[in-house]
Design a protein around this nucleic acid. Structure first.
Length: 271
DNA sequence: AAAGCTGACAACCGCCACAGT
DNA sequence: CACTGTGGCGGTTGTCAGCTT
């Protein structure tokens, strides 16, 4: 007796999602929140596998996603984290708000891998492909791993985890905020090495979700949208708007700051 | 203009971990 | 403890747009 498929293969549509399907899924999630994915297709009126719905939502439709290519700094951060974590894309993605594991994985496979190979660096081990190359001929090359700052030719400056200051006890969400500063990746790695809490978090022993999507149970007529100058007449309009956001990048619309919006609304109401 | 090729990215598949029974 | 259902992860494949011939 084999494993039961995640969904009934018969009648389940595959392939690219249509705008109509996206609308249905967005409508459903916005109305009901994320619940049992297996039940979503039926409840949302989709002929899709629940798994497919989850992937579509998490990788493409989620309103907090950035769209577009990874910038130079994000790329550098991916390399740094990959050197530490390996192919643990979800862990890497957890340190890059607005980016999905799938997106990072794809970018790694199509861009960064080639870039590193071009530089003579093995993208798997992060070691030089040819020991006699320009990297370092004097120090025990057979076992030496490139430290991240040696990739500096990829990027003039590097990244650090904002809000994670020494002598402070940042929240995990604070840790997740990545900012670009000219401190160099070396500083980041020193910090990672020094701090066991952060390191264990990155290695998955300590596990806080960056974006707790389970809390996205937006009320049916929530204040967020009602407060907008051009409030949506229906969830259908809202879904359409969200779909439009995918074309431009939701950050252009400020959707990535739901919490800030909510806070500002609460502030207003308090006044 | 059409065929072939390539790169980028969306989507799928199989496996695993974990919770519930 | 065994079994089942579910969600999540990483590897792989499919699709399509753009480029080259």
């Amino acid at each position: 007796m084999g494993r039961q498929p995640c969904c009934d293969k018969l009648g389940v549509k595959k392939g690219p999602w249509t705008t109509e399907e996206d609308k249905k899924l967005i409508n459903f999630i916005l109305t009901n929140g994320q619940c049992c994915w297996r039940a979503v297709p039926k409840l949302a009126g989709l002929r899709r596998c629940g798994k497919s719905c989850r992937l579509r939502w998490t990788n493409y439709l989620r309103p907090d996603l950035k769209r577009g290519l990874l910038n130079e700094y994000e790329e550098q951060l991916v390399i740094d984290l990959h050197a530490r974590l390996g192919n643990r894309w979800s862990k890497i993605a957890a340190n890059m708000p607005g980016r999905t594991d799938n997106e990072i994985k794809n970018h790694w496979n199509t861009h960064i891998k080639k870039k590193l190979l071009k530089m003579g660096i093995d993208p798997v081990t992060h070691e030089p492909l040819q020991k006699e190359t320009e990297v370092d001929l004097t120090s025990s090359p057979s076992t030496q791993k490139l430290v991240p700052h040696e990739y500096s030719s990829l990027s003039p400056s590097a990244t650090t985890i904002q809000g994670y200051e020494e002598n402070s006890t940042p929240t995990l969400s604070e840790k997740s905020i990545i900012s670009i500063q000219d401190q160099g990746t070396e500083a980041l790695f020193e910090r990672l090495s020094e701090d066991e809490r952060l390191l264990s978090y990155l290695l998955g022993e300590d596990e806080p979700p960056l974006v707790d999507t389970s809390t996205w149970e937006l009320p049916n007529n929530g204040p967020i949208f009602n407060d907008c100058p051009d409030a949506f007449a229906s969830w259908d309009d809202c879904a359409t708007w969200l779909l439009d956001c995918q074309d431009f990048g939701v950050h252009d619309f400020g959707l990535d700051v739901f919490n800030d919006v909510e806070i500002s609304i609460i502030d207003k109401e308090d006044k």
